[in-house]
């Protein structure tokens, strides 16, 4: 069991804040205002290629977050300039026809600006697409979470809800992988869950417990809605696991903090990721990348154990993000840091 560096890529000239993976492509966003697209299909064998660098004049400030839309070729990017940009790429059909001309053809892909979404008063800090790709959520220092509805083409965005219950900056949003349920993490030390009550998005639960800014959360995957759990990472250096219990008579969701994972970090935790096979990864200011596994402890009890740890995963720099990525059945971890690098790690069980 372990983490082994497969590839380190110096992509950006400043802090690398965010990355997202879909269909062999990794997108990254940075303070240097550049969004890069990398083909990582062969990353388990240490091979990667830069496919495109998106127009860096579109955003006037740092790119804070990037997110691929499920079932489509669209990429969304949120920026400190208060806007969200939507990018599209042409189909790959031409590439296959040109294959005879050599390998060079697979090294290009062009993404063009499709739309700019305005609405937030200041820095956009997080964005996320719902599992069906129909809804986009964004959050900002202006304390609000917005939900946007879009069509198949993803060209038009209509705001269907502005959620303003957080009392401070909203740092991160994430959708449940199967349900219309949204979680937002905030500088007010709480996580809020939001759901649709007869076409009205409302707060369904507030998770209190963290003793500092909550930077990130992620849902458990592959449960087909049978059970709902969420993990979260915070300034208080803890990773917590929360479980949905039931709805009360007013339709509010009841959640409990089920576990605080074994302590690994001694500074802020900036990112957590829950893999499709049940492992949680965390990273943050101390540069440590940790992987936790839930193990049975007799009857119905479960404990979490640290099963792998990589210190200084971006050298002496802070790590801002970690994501599990599944490349044709190969489990890998992708991390991004203040050194402007993406590091790709092979994971062996």
């Amino acid at each position: 069991m372990g983490i082994k560096l497969a590839k380190s890529l110096k992509l950006q000239n400043d802090k690398l804040w965010s990355l997202d993976y879909s269909h062999g492509l990794l997108a990254t966003g940075s303070t240097d205002r550049k969004i890069k697209i990398i083909n990582v299909t062969n990353a388990p064998r240490g091979q990667v290629s830069l496919m495109d660098v998106l127009d860096d004049t579109v955003h006037k400030k740092a790119i804070r977050c990037v997110a691929w839309r499920p079932h489509s070729n669209l990429l969304a990017a949120g920026s400190f300039d208060s806007t969200v940009s939507i990018w599209t790429r042409e189909d790959d059909l031409e590439e296959e026809e040109d294959d005879d001309e050599g390998e060079g053809t697979t090294n290009s892909l062009e993404m063009d600006l499709l739309a700019i979404i305005e609405g937030h008063e200041n820095e956009v800090k997080g964005i996320a697409w719902s599992h069906d790709g129909a809804l986009l959520s964004s959050c900002s220092r202006d304390k609000s979470v917005w939900i946007w509805e879009t069509d198949q083409d993803g060209e038009e965005y209509e705001c269907i809800s502005v959620l303003q219950e957080h009392s401070q900056d909203v740092k991160h949003v994430v959708w449940h992988p199967e349900l219309p349920l949204l979680a937002s993490s905030s500088y007010d030390d709480t996580i809020r869950l939001w759901k649709d009550y007869d076409d009205d998005w409302e707060c369904a639960a507030v998770l209190n417990g963290h003793e500092g800014t909550v930077w990130c959360s992620d849902f458990e995957k592959g449960k087909n809605g049978e059970s709902i759990r969420l993990c979260s990472g915070s300034d208080d250096s803890t990773v917590r696991v929360w479980r949905y219990i039931d709805d009360d008579e007013d339709g509010q969701q009841e959640w409990i903090c089920e576990a605080i994972l074994p302590k690994v970090h001694d500074r802020q935790i900036y990112s957590v990721s829950w893999s499709t096979n049940g492992l949680i990864a965390s990273t943050g200011s101390d540069g440590t990348l940790a992987v936790y596994k839930e193990v049975s402890n007799g009857d119905d009890e479960h404990d979490w154990e640290v099963i792998a740890k990589q210190e200084l995963c971006h050298g002496v720099y802070e790590a801002n993000i970690v994501k599990w990525i599944d490349i044709n059945g190969n489990m890998m971890l992708a991390t991004g840091g203040d050194d402007g690098c993406v590091n790709l790690w092979n994971w062996t069980d």
């Binding site: 400030k61 740092a62 820095e123 900056d169």
Partner: peptide, 15 residues
């Protein structure tokens, strides 16, 4: 204290 040690807020302030 919270504001001064929030990396994201400091980064935004620097822009």
């Amino acid at each position: 204290n919270k504001q001064l040690n929030d990396k994201e807020r400091v980064a935004a302030a620097c822009e």
